[in-house]
Amino acid sequence: MTIVLALLLAQAAAPAPDLARGEKIFSQSCAIGYCHGAKGAANRGPRLRGRHFERQYLIRVIRDGIANTAMPAFKATLNEADLNAVIAYVESLSGAADTSGHEVSSLPAVKPAAPVAEAHPGRSLFFDATKGTRCGSCHVVDNQGVAVGPALARAAGTSADILNAIQKGKANRVRMVTIRGEAPFPAIVVEQSSDTVRLYDLNSMTPVLRTLPARDVTIGPASDWLHGSLVRGYTAAELTMIASYLSSQ
C-alpha cells in the first residue's frame, strides 16, 4: 500500500507521462503477436482497448506482472519514465472504441539504434551469445545466468587472482564419476540418496543434470578437471576483461 502511495506521489511530482512514448513501447512490448494485439485490440492476451481498469491495478500488473501467467513484470525491463508512459497509454485506450484500430501511427520514423551497450564490456563478454559456451551458461552474476557452478556475486580477489582462477583453477567440487557402461567423466554431484544420484555431467557444454540409480554410480576422488578447458572460446584479452568485471562486482 505504501509503495503504491509513494508511487502515486512520485507520479504527482513527475512530468506528465509521454503518451507517444507509451504507444511506442506498447507496440513493441505489449501489442506483439503473442499478447494484447495492435492498440490493445486483443490477441492471445486479453483485449485492453475499450475496457476500464483501476489505475492501481494497472500499476501493479504492469510493474509486477501476474504470477503463473504470461504477463511479465515490466519493472525488470523498463525504467520509471517508460513504465509511467505505458500505464498512461493503456489508460488512454479505455476511451477508445472496442474495434481494432485503423489509423496510421502518428509516430515519427526513427533510425534503429545499435543495441544498448552493457555497462562493463566484461559483462557483455560474460553473457556473449555469440559464444557457444559462455560464462553465463554455468554461472550467475548480478541475478543473470544459469546456476550450475558457484554464483560469482562475491568473487573475492583482484582481477589477476580471478583471471588465474578462470584459466588454471581446479574445482574441488568436481569429481571423477564412473557409471556402468560409460567412460569416467568429471561431474558435480548435487544430490545423493540411498537409491538416486543427481549430478551435472561436465562432459557436455552446457552440463547435463543426470538422475541415476545410485547402484550404477561410483563417485571417485577430486578430478583433475580444469576450468580452463571451458573457456577456449574466449581470447586472453577477453578473459582479462571478464576478470576485471568480476573483480568490480
Binding site: 513493441q28 495492435a38 492498440k39 481494432s100 501511427s105 520514423a109 534503429p112 551469445a129
Partner: peptide, 19 residues
C-alpha cells in the same frame, strides 16, 4: 506498418504492427 525498433537482446522485436 513497419516501424524501426532497436534490438534488445532476448526481447520481442517485430519492427511493426498489423491489423
Amino acid at each position: 506498418t513497419a516501424t524501426p525498433e532497436e534490438p534488445r537482446e532476448g526481447q520481442f522485436w517485430f519492427g511493426g504492427s498489423f491489423t
